[in-house]
């Protein structure tokens, strides 16, 4: 990270975390996290369950509150100020494990909600925008349906389109494929790969190692609330340095 950081010194990083610590009650979930994500960088975070990887990315858009350390998103430091939190959230898109589409709204309405109410776009404009992104995730023909009528893979693609409609600078993916049936994983990953090709800054918590190999600039391995290893995918997979990374990789790729 050090050489990269000096190389990119001039330009502000997209996400910066310095000495971030978080506790759930007495449980120390995030321990001294230091992380810098440059614009256009694609990062995959993996690790055993309970290692704090979801918590880490959820701190970035303040769905979780950290108790110590600094988080700066796009040059805006994250504080308790509600306006500032909303400002940061506008530039950060998030895709959840369980999609979290709004079941009482159609696919199109799901996508138009934030553009109309937050960015104050007229409905026509919001719908055009939404249709454009729905076409990109290849689900435009389902625009008038309700989420409950779609398959898991389709719902997750809608969720990605919904986030993209806000033109985020960075996208957070919180295990986007782990609630999906195997045959649907590919359709979602394809969309994510496509997004990565277009230069979107991405932080993905995922166990899809194939995805990590193809698109990631860096792979981060977390365990017990700390970053254990951080490397280019090639080195990470072929020559893992720490013992725990080796153990984890052997478990996940073992069969």
């Amino acid at each position: 990270m050090n050489e990269q950081a000096t190389r990119a010194g001039a330009e502000t990083p997209m996400v910066e975390m310095r000495g971030v610590n978080k506790w759930y009650g007495d449980f120390h979930v995030l321990r001294d996290i230091d992380l810098e994500v440059k614009r256009g960088e694609r990062i995959v975070i993996c690790g055993p369950s309970g290692s704090g990887k979801s918590t880490l990315i959820r701190c970035i858009n303040h769905l979780e509150e950290h108790q110590a350390g600094e988080i700066v998103v796009g040059g805006v430091p994250l504080t308790q100020d509600v306006k500032r939190i909303e400002q940061i959230r506008r530039s950060v898109g998030m895709v959840f494990q369980h999609f979290n589409l709004f079941p009482h709204l159609t696919v199109l309405e799901n996508c138009c909600l934030a553009p109309m109410w937050v960015q104050k776009k007229p409905r026509r404009e919001a719908e055009e925008l939404a249709m454009r992104y729905l076409e990109r995730v290849q689900i435009a023909e389902q625009a008038r349906k309700y989420p409950g009528q779609l398959s898991g893979g389709q719902q997750q693609r809608v969720a990605i389109a919904r986030s993209l409609c806000m033109h985020p600078d960075v996208m957070l993916f919180d295990e986007p494929t782990s609630a999906l049936d195997p045959e649907m994983i590919k359709e979602v990953l394809d969309v994510m790969v496509e997004l990565a090709r277009e230069g979107m800054t991405m932080l993905c918590v995922t166990h899809e190692m194939g995805f990590a190999k193809t698109v990631a600039d860096r792979v981060i391995f977390m365990d017990q609330g700390q970053i254990i290893e951080e490397n280019a995918p090639e080195t990470f997979f072929n020559n893992p340095q720490s013992e725990r990374t080796q153990l984890f990789l052997s478990q996940i790729l073992g069969h």
Partner: peptide, 24 residues
């Protein structure tokens, strides 16, 4: 998850209630 999704879309708390929680 509904609240979180709405918050992640940067809807302010008042709109989260009005557009997402209350109708459901």
């Amino acid at each position: 998850g509904q609240t979180e999704a709405a918050q992640a879309l940067s809807l302010p708390q008042k709109l989260v209630l009005r557009l997402v929680i209350v109708p459901q």
